[in-house]
Design a protein around this nucleic acid. Structure first.
Lengths: 211, 211
DNA sequence: GTGAGATTGTGAATTAGTTAACATCTTTTA
DNA sequence: TAAAAGATGTTAACTAATTCACAATCTCAC
């Protein structure tokens, strides 16, 4: 297993991966940190340092070989195998994520969805079966799903989270505005659209020039 | 105007604001940093430091007065006035954001949407008029909109961004996977769902215990 | 081959962010 | 009124992240 990478670096890996795919598609053979820096908007020294955590991936005077770097990140980001993910709460946002189809640009897919609304449970939405919430723990275990996308109303966020944990979930992509409580070995990644918008507004008001 | 706040602090302000609203609604009169820390999952010392950038907002031995702190953040986050926002690209995700209705928990609303598809331009979707993309610059100026949510296909992300900038946009909430190029005085906040998911998968694989 | 030019990988310096620790002030209770 | 308890604001210590700057190494044109 890879050595302990700084968190900040880990968050940038998917960006590198995506851009390497684009470069590979465009037929580029090699790329320098400076060149990559311009497209991903990250300082070249930071890119070199990030890459160097994984060993010497480049060649002096030449740069990084696109296809081998791509292959490296593919395995590092587990993109060489399919990851199944559950979606909890098929409302506005949930439905949009079902359509969004991560699978296109990402080797992950929503393979099961859950909701309380009996109008939609039992149906297939955007190619994904929708189960009733009561069956959640059972299905999660059965399908061995370890990651859940949480798009339920805030009021039930914590109780559903508790069930997810009981069902063996290890990672939660939390779209609710609440900071849910989980055991230490479960990771929560918060995606809060209202927050992002407010932060943007704040920066515009208070950091007039760049930031 | 407020002094220069660390970026990390600025990103936490919306979280504080949201939780203060919840506390106020539940009738709480005052709150200590320790108590708040538990609900928002941020170290109490960090909370005190964050608040202290804005001056002495609390009282020793008592904590922070919920309603006055709430009022303070309300103005600081420009939540005391309505902010109009444009949505560019009424696809899956765009439509979901229209329904999402920021307005409920946030004094911002999407007041105009834009798309190329003649099937939907001219219509009102989820209460918001959809204009053809050709009219974008004109409408942005007319309605004095400074913030845009970008939910267009990646292929046109940069060209649409250039138009947004030409139309006077100062902040972009970018849902496309591309890192768009903008002038220095324009701020881009990237929200990349695929990234978030990949990062989560990476952390689960490589940081078995918490992180 | 050889030398000019390119570009990495990384110590060292710097900057940013977090946390500990505590003097200081406020509240409360008796 | 005095003393105990509570909780801030902030200095100082620490940890994390970024960036500089350059020796080491490679490429490629001739």
């Amino acid at each position: 297993m890879t050595p302990n990478i700084p968190k900040a670096t880990a968050k940038r890996l998917p960006i590198y991966y995506r851009y390497l795919k684009i470069l590979a598609d465009s037929g580029k053979k090699h790329v320098s940190s400076t060149e990559l820096a311009e497209t991903v908007k990250i300082d070249p020294a930071t890119i070199r340092r990030d890459f160097s955590y994984f060993g010497a991936l480049g060649k002096r005077g030449y740069g990084y070989d696109v296809s081998s770097l791509l292959a490296f990140f593919k395995t590092t980001l587990s993109q060489d195998k399919l990851t199944n993910v559950a979606l909890i709460g098929v409302g506005n946002l949930g439905q949009a994520l079902l359509n969004y189809n991560f699978h296109k640009s990402n080797n992950a897919r929503i393979s099961a969805a859950f909701d309380i609304d009996p109008q939609i449970t039992g149906l297939i939405r955007s190619g994904v079966p929708v189960y009733p919430l009561e069956d959640m723990q059972e299905q999660l275990r059965l399908q061995q799903i370890k990651i859940a996308i949480l798009t339920v109303p805030a009021a039930v966020a914590q109780s559903v989270t508790d069930e997810l944990v009981a069902g063996g979930i290890k990672g939660i992509l939390n779209f609710t505005p609440l900071r849910v409580t989980v055991p230490e070995n479960v990771r929560v990644q918060n995606v809060d659209l209202t927050n992002e918008l407010q932060t943007l507004i704040y920066f515009l008001q208070h950091f007039e020039h760049n930031g």
